[in-house]
Design a protein around this nucleic acid. Sequence first.
DNA 1: CCGGATCCGTTTCGATACTG
DNA 2: CAGTATCGAAACGGATCCGG
Lengths: 142, 142
Amino acid sequence: MENKFRSSCPVTSAIDIVGDKWTLVIIKQMLTEDKKTFKGFTESSEAIATNILSSRLKMLEEFQIIKKEKLPNNKKVNIYTLTEKGLALAPTIIELTIWSTDNFRNYHPDMYSGDQIKMIKNDKENYINLLIKNYKEKNWLK
Amino acid sequence: MENKFRSSCPVTSAIDIVGDKWTLVIIKQMLTEDKKTFKGFTESSEAIATNILSSRLKMLEEFQIIKKEKLPNNKKVNIYTLTEKGLALAPTIIELTIWSTDNFRNYHPDMYSGDQIKMIKNDKENYINLLIKNYKEKNWLK
DNA sequence: CCGGATCCGTTTCGATACTG
DNA sequence: CAGTATCGAAACGGATCCGG
C-alpha cells in the first residue's frame, strides 16, 4: 500500500483516520456495541447515511483497521470485524470516553455512573485488555 | 451553555468535538509544539487555512477547551492556551500517538524511535503528568 | 430483505484576497 | 497580527434505485 497520508507527522497521520466523525463512530460501535453488519451500522442511533458508511468502511478496510468477511453459511450478509490494528485503538477510545464523561456529564445524565468510570480509571489496563479479549472471543473464533 | 450535542451517547458527544481533523491538530500543536498564536497555527506544517482555524478556535473556546487572552504588555497578539478541560485530552492524544507509531511506522521513518515509544509506554502515566505539568508551568504563570 | 451505488440539492471546506 | 469575505470545489446526506 502506498503512502496515503498528507503529513509526515505521526499523530497527524492518525488524525487523517481518526479525526473523522464517522470513522470514530463506526469503530466505537464495533468495539462497544457489537455492531458488525452494514445494516447494523445504519440502524444505530447515530443514523449514518449509507453512502457515507460505505465510503468509511472501504477506507477502514484499506488501512486494515477492519476486515470484511462472509459467514460460511450465509452468502448475503457481510461481517465487519476489527483487526488487531483496529483493536489497538481501544485505549484511545477508552480515554476519549473518560474525558467525555468527566467533562460533559451535565449534558448526559444517562451516561456511566461515577462509580463505573472510577472503576475503569482505577484499572484501566485490565479493563482494556478484557475488552479486547472479549471482542476476540466473540468475533474471531467462529 | 445549552446542549450543543446531537447525540446522547457520551463518546459520540466527544466525537462531535474530537472527531474533526483540525480540532485535533490544533490541540496537538498546543500540547506538544508550543503553538499558541493564530499566526503560529497557520505557519505549521499542516498549513491550516485561516477561516477554518478561526472557526475551530471559536468552537474550542465555546466548549472551554481553550481560552483566549492578551498579554498585558501586548494588545495585538492573542494567546490561546489549553484549559484544564483541554489538558485532560492529553491521555487521548498520547494513546493516539502510540497507536500511530505502532501501526504506521513504515510511512514515517522520521518519527519517534522505538526506544522513545517504549519509554512512554512503560511509564505512560508519569509521562502524561509531566507533559501537563510542563505545559502549566510554561503557559499558566506569567 | 441486505448491501451497497447513484443521483442531486445543501452544506462545508479551503485557497486566496482583503480589512482593521 | 488576527482575523473576515468570497467563491469554486469537495463532501455530506437523504432518497431512491438495483443486483443478488
